[in-house]
Structure formats: structure tokens, C-alpha cells
Amino acid sequence: MQMKPYRIGTRGSPLALAQAYETRDRLMAAHDLPESAFEIVVLSTKGDRITDRPLAEIGGKGLFTEELEEQLGDGRLDLAVHSSKDMPTVLPEGLGIVAYLEREDPRDAFISGAGGALEELPQNAVVGSSSLRRQALIRRLRPDISVITFRGLVDTRLRKLAEGEVHATMLAYAGLKRLGKAEVATHLMDPESFPPALGQGAICIEARVGDERIRDLLAPIDHAETHSALSCERAFLGALDGSCRTPIAGHATLSNGQISFYGMILTPDGATFHEIRVEGPEADAAALGGDAGAEVRGRAGAKFFESWV
């Protein structure tokens, strides 16, 4: 019998907390447990503390997980809640992603004080984004636009936009919805012409490998279709050694036991890109994603990746 509360680790941003509370509430409902059966443990990560530089300059995706994983590994936490797109493809020994909540809308939200869409911005407009993927895709569609690094919490970015620092910015629509701010989006990007980050919109839960008690706890809230889709997407990313230094995009969808995946890699200026589409049985999701990544990597050649460093 669980005597102490289950300790759920999370970052302290409003979005991270919303995701942790959603996970807790789903666990409460699934197991008919009271709120007191869980404790939300808030940790500050290096990625949260350093906001004046691009992630690629200070270490990439692991910046948002390292402190959580340290406490998860030594038993101070029972599970950790993350945005899937923040997760490195290689996790610390003994840790793994055990469950995914049902995915929210994976599209990017375009936000402009003047309203409208990316194609409606004036010539030489300025767009703020911290994502190399978004920066590259914006440059691919609108080479005239100046893209600047734009980090900070959602409210910070929206304030900078309102103050006129940029003409527009982009955020994950799923995050806006979870924060109750969906109405700020002036346009939703088409995932065909502007594919999302791998894992965007999905909350994942990390735990110790072999901890059957926690695995059994999480099993009822693990969404099977999201788990399959993310297995495909993360395998694609893993085959490409994806990190915050690499503009990589893609999205997997499922229908009637079949998985369809569309992936893309770009140079940071958006001028050169390689894309791929594959489909097959849901049971082969990870293999399909890994094979797609390997094919794109071979097609692009080593020099393509060297140019990202």
C-alpha cells in the first residue's frame, strides 16, 4: 500500500504546472484517489534560469530535464511530467518514458498584434521565435522576414509582442489551450507546409525503468494512439541525432491501425530541405520512424548536418 504521497516532478512555469496538475487529476480519477495522495514537486531547471541565449548555445533539450531526472533517478521523485518535444532522444540510464497523455492539437499558433497570418505580414517584418525549426520554416516560406531569438514564458513573449518588439511570434497551440489562452492565436499553421516539432502537443511521463508500482499507476492514463505516434516521431528524431541545434519537424497520425508519418529536415536558413512520407502498421511505428530518419539522413549527406554545428 502506498503510504506516502506519489511525488510528481515538474518545472515551475505556468504551462509545466498545468501539465503536472492534468496528470495528477487523471491519476486521481483513474484510481479513485484523493488529491492528498499526490505531491507536486517544483524544480527549477537550467533551461528555466538562462533565458537570454538560444538553447542551442547552452546545451539543448536536456536543459529542461536534468534536475528532474537527477531526483527521479535517486528516488526523490516517483515520476516526472514533461512536454514531449523537450525530451532528448537518449535518456539517462535507468529512466524511460512510461506513458503519454492524449495528444492535444500539435499545430503551431501564429500570433500577430495586427492579426492575420504569416503570408500577410509586410515585407521585412520581424518575427520572434526561440525555435530553430520555426525560424527555418519561416525563412523557407518568407525569406524576406527577419527572425530574432525570442525566449521566455508564454506571458513574457506575449507582452513583448504587445509592446511592439516584433510584428509576430509563434507558440505551440496546445500550450495556449492548456493555459486558457487559445484566443490569442490569429492563425493556425498548416502542418503540411509548416510541420510541428516532433512530440509537440503531447505530455509524457518519465519514470524509473523496472518500477512496476509506478508503471501500474500510469498504465490507465497512457493513451495508446499517442504512444504509438510518439514512438514513431522519437525514432525519426533519434535516427537524426535530433536536438535543439537541428531544424527537424514531423508529425505522425493514426487511422484504423495504420500510421502515417511526414518528416522534414532543413538548413537553418530554410533554403535547403529534405522531406519524407511513410506509412505502415501501427505495430511498426518505431521501426517506420527510425527507417524514415535513416533514409533522410542518407539522402541529405554528412555535409548537410555538419553545416548545423
Score class of each variant (00 low, 15 high):
residue 109 A to Q: 12
residue 111 I to T: 09
residue 113 G to V: 07
residue 114 A to S: 15
residue 114 A to F: 06
residue 116 G to K: 10
residue 118 L to N: 06
residue 119 E to A: 12
residue 124 N to P: 00
residue 124 N to L: 05
residue 125 A to S: 15
residue 126 V to W: 11
residue 128 G to P: 01
residue 128 G to S: 03
residue 130 S to T: 05
residue 130 S to C: 06
residue 134 R to A: 09
residue 136 A to T: 04
residue 138 I to P: 05
residue 138 I to E: 04
residue 143 P to S: 04
residue 143 P to I: 04
residue 145 I to D: 06
residue 146 S to Q: 13
residue 146 S to I: 13
residue 147 V to R: 09
residue 148 I to R: 14
residue 150 F to T: 00
residue 150 F to E: 08
residue 152 G to K: 04
residue 154 V to N: 07
residue 154 V to W: 08
residue 155 D to R: 11
residue 158 L to P: 08
residue 159 R to F: 02
residue 159 R to N: 08
residue 161 L to M: 11
residue 162 A to M: 12
residue 162 A to F: 04
residue 165 E to Y: 12
residue 165 E to C: 01
residue 166 V to K: 05
residue 170 M to Y: 00
residue 170 M to I: 07
residue 171 L to V: 03
residue 173 Y to I: 04
residue 174 A to V: 06
residue 175 G to Y: 10
residue 176 L to S: 09
residue 177 K to L: 14
residue 178 R to I: 00
residue 179 L to K: 14
residue 180 G to L: 12
residue 181 K to P: 00
residue 183 E to Q: 14
residue 184 V to Q: 13
residue 185 A to P: 01
residue 185 A to C: 05
residue 186 T to M: 09
residue 186 T to A: 09
residue 188 L to N: 01
residue 189 M to T: 03
residue 190 D to K: 09
residue 191 P to R: 06
residue 193 S to H: 09
residue 196 P to S: 12
residue 196 P to M: 10
residue 198 L to M: 09
residue 203 I to T: 15
residue 203 I to H: 01
residue 204 C to Q: 02
residue 208 R to H: 13
residue 210 G to Q: 02
residue 212 E to M: 08
residue 212 E to S: 12
residue 213 R to F: 06
residue 213 R to C: 09
residue 214 I to Y: 10
residue 215 R to T: 13
residue 216 D to R: 13
residue 218 L to D: 13
residue 219 A to T: 07
residue 223 H to L: 00
residue 224 A to T: 04
residue 224 A to Y: 02
residue 225 E to F: 04
residue 226 T to G: 05
residue 232 C to G: 08
residue 234 R to K: 14
residue 235 A to N: 03
residue 237 L to M: 11
residue 237 L to H: 09
residue 238 G to M: 03
residue 239 A to F: 11
residue 240 L to N: 03
residue 242 G to I: 06
residue 243 S to L: 02
residue 243 S to V: 02
residue 244 C to Q: 13
